[in-house]
Structure formats: structure tokens, C-alpha cells
């Protein structure tokens, strides 16, 4: 029965948050049922809405990893935003530099590698600072975000600016041949596949490999891990590296699937939402997939809420906040519900 807990508790929490949100919109003078219906319609109500949701979910899967993986070794990293920016920067530089030099397949592959390497190293630095210097990783990753964004803005408006980009400063394009297209006839770009693949691969790493097991030991009890002779430092940095690499891919997708060039908009705000996804998925890479879909759906429905109910765009922020808070509060229920047959033995 305890196996049901990880499924039922979040579902119950979701229902509770929707009820609370219903009270909120009712207080604001709207009919909650109609609002629910619009959220459903905007997120999952039709194939059009599904595509809308999917295209938002893929970067969330990748940025969530930047918080989820370090969390497995006990670090709370909020540097997804910075890794996205650095990944985008690396991908754009490679794309621009190699445009026309190599075949598109090779350029895309190299952009991917560069984004993974740079995003990964960016966050690995946070892990290394934590491990070797005791620098608080939450704060340093936050600062890394601001620094990455400042560097991006500087480059886009200065050295990398394409003079032809008139009213929106941007770099020269990476070339339309080097762009990642959409899946079949849909309007969802291939980034979705990247996101799913990353979630599955990292789930295997976390759940099925010795390394993943060692990471969990470190996350559970670092002293025991030391005593057991685990290479704690290496694993901590590796977890950050993998997380950062995933977020770097999200940045590469912004360049290669959405914008086709570098501009300040490649920082599309998926970094902070990814933190939310990671915590809601309890840092489980596989659970990140449905949570990212849910969050992507909520964000996708924001526009419809504005247009059909005249609700401000902040409505979806409030909804996300409520869901986040309720699900976090529900963490305390694990092992305490009637479903857990032998209370007291858990954890």
C-alpha cells in the first residue's frame, strides 16, 4: 500500500490547491468552475492546447534537472537560469562560428555539446565552491544567475550585436539550416524529445546505477558517505555538472529551436520555474515529466484566462504558488497516512 503514497499524496495536494485557488478566484469575483474549465481548455482541452503545453514543458524538464540532481546529494541549487543563459551563449557562438562550415547535423551536435559542457561547468563550479570552500550553494548559484544574465546582455548589446538587428539587439542568426525543427506536422519542436530523453537517462543514472546509489547515500548522510569511502567531492560536482548540462540544453533549444540567434530573450524564465518542478517531483527525474506537463499546462492556460475572464496574468503565478505551497506542506504526510501500514518505521 505504501507504494500508493507517492501517487495519492500529490494528487490530493493538487485537488486541495485547486480548491484553494477556486476560493481565491471566487473572492476576486469570478466563477471558479468556469476558470477551471478555461485552464483545462487552455492546457489540455484540444490538440492545439496540448501542443501549447508540450512546447512549454520541454525546457522545464531540462531546467528542473538542474535543481533535482544536486538535491540528490543534498545541495539546493537554484542556478538553472544561469545555466540556461550560459548554454544558450555557448550554443549560439558555436552555431554562428560553424554556420556553413560543417553540415547542419554536425553543427547541431556541436551546439548541443557546447551547451552541455558550458552549462555543466557553470553549475559544477557552484558544487565545487560548496565542496572545497564551503560556499553556500543556494546563494552562489543565485549570484551566478545574475552574473550570467549580465554577461549575456553585455554581449548582445555590445560585441556580438548584429548591426542589422534594429530594434531588438541580437547576434547574427545561426542560420536556418542549423535550426531544430518541429516534430512531424506539429508545432512542437524537437526539444520535447531532448527533455524526455534527459529525464529517462538521468532517471536510469539516479535509480539504476551504483553512482546514483552513492549520490543518495551522500544526500542522506554525508558523514556516513565519507566513512564508507565514497568520493564525495567528485560525486557532488558530478551531480551539479549533469544538472547544469541539462539546463544548458534548455538554453541551446532557445537558440536553435526558438530564436535562431542570441538575444536577451533566450533567458525565457524557465530557470526559476524549473526549481518548482524539481521540488514538486521530489527530485525524481521520471516524476519530473508529468509535473513539467502540469506546470507547462498551467502556463499555457494563462493567456486564455486573460482573454476570456479578464483575469490579470498574475493569476497563474498565484495558482503556481498555491500548488507549490500545498505540495510542499504535503511532504510531511509521507509515512503518516493510513496508507502507511507501519507508522513509526518510516524514515
Amino acid at each position: 500500500m505504501r507504494l500508493l503514497e507517492p501517487l495519492l499524496i500529490p494528487l490530493a495536494a493538487l485537488v486541495v490547491s485547486l480548491l484553494l485557488f477556486g476560493v481565491f478566484v471566487a473572492l476576486a469575483g469570478h466563477n471558479p468552475l468556469q476558470v477551471y474549465h478555461s485552464i483545462y481548455r487552455g492546457a489540455f482541452g484540444s490538440w492545439f492546447s496540448w501542443q501549447n503545453t508540450l512546447v512549454r514543458a520541454s525546457p522545464l524538464m531540462l531546467t528542473a534537472m538542474c535543481t533535482a540532481l544536486p538535491a540528490r546529494v543534498g545541495l539546493i541549487v537554484i542556478g538553472g537560469e544561469g545555466a540556461v543563459v550560459v548554454g544558450a551563449l555557448a550554443a549560439a557562438l558555436v552555431g554562428i562560428g560553424l554556420n556553413g562550415v560543417f553540415a547542419p547535423v554536425a553543427v547541431i551536435g556541436l551546439m548541443l555539446l557546447a551547451a552541455m559542457a558550458c552549462g555543466g561547468l557553470w553549475v559544477a563550479a557552484v558544487g565545487a565552491l560548496r565542496h572545497y570552500r564551503g560556499v553556500n550553494e543556494t546563494i552562489s548559484s543565485l549570484l551566478f544567475n545574475y552574473i550570467a544574465i549580465a554577461i549575456l546582455n553585455f554581449l548582445v548589446i555590445g560585441p556580438l550585436r548584429d548591426p542589422a538587428s534594429l530594434n531588438k539587439p541580437a547576434s547574427v542568426p545561426i542560420g536556418s539550416d542549423n535550426m531544430i525543427g518541429n516534430i512531424a506536422e506539429s508545432s512542437v519542436h524537437w526539444g520535447l524529445a531532448y527533455g524526455l530523453l534527459a529525464c529517462l537517462t538521468l532517471w536510469l543514472v539516479v535509480r539504476r546505477s551504483t553512482m546514483g546509489f552513492a549520490m543518495d547515500v551522500i544526500g542522506g548522510n554525508p558523514r556516513a558517505a565519507y566513512l564508507a569511502g565514497l568520493p564525495v567531492g567528485r560525486l557532488v560536482i558530478l551531480a551539479c555538472l549533469l544538472g547544469g548540462a541539462a539546463a544548458g540544453v534548455a538554453g541551446m533549444l532557445e537558440v536553435a529551436a526558438v530564436h535562431g540567434r542570441l538575444s536577451s530573450s533566450v533567458n525565457a524564465g524557465y530557470g526559476y520555474a524549473g526549481i518548482l518542478v524539481a521540488f514538486l517531483a521530489r527530485h525524481n527525474p521520471l516524476a519530473i515529466i508529468p509535473v513539467a506537463l502540469l506546470l507547462g499546462g498551467i502556463r499555457a492556460s494563462g493567456g486564455l484566462l486573460q482573454r476570456s475572464h479578464d483575469l490579470p496574468d498574475a493569476t497563474v503565478l498565484v495558482l503556481q504558488g498555491i500548488i507549490f505551497l500545498v505540495i510542499l506542506a504535503s511532504e510531511s504526510l509521507y509515512g503518516r497516512t493510513p496508507l502507511s501500514q507501519r507508522p513509526g518505521v518510516t524514515r
Partner: peptide, 9 residues
Amino acid sequence: IALMLFGTG
């Protein structure tokens, strides 16, 4: 982080 989102929203 949740409260940051909720408060600003």
C-alpha cells in the same frame, strides 16, 4: 521559493 512566487503573484 514558493512564497516568493506566491507573494509576487
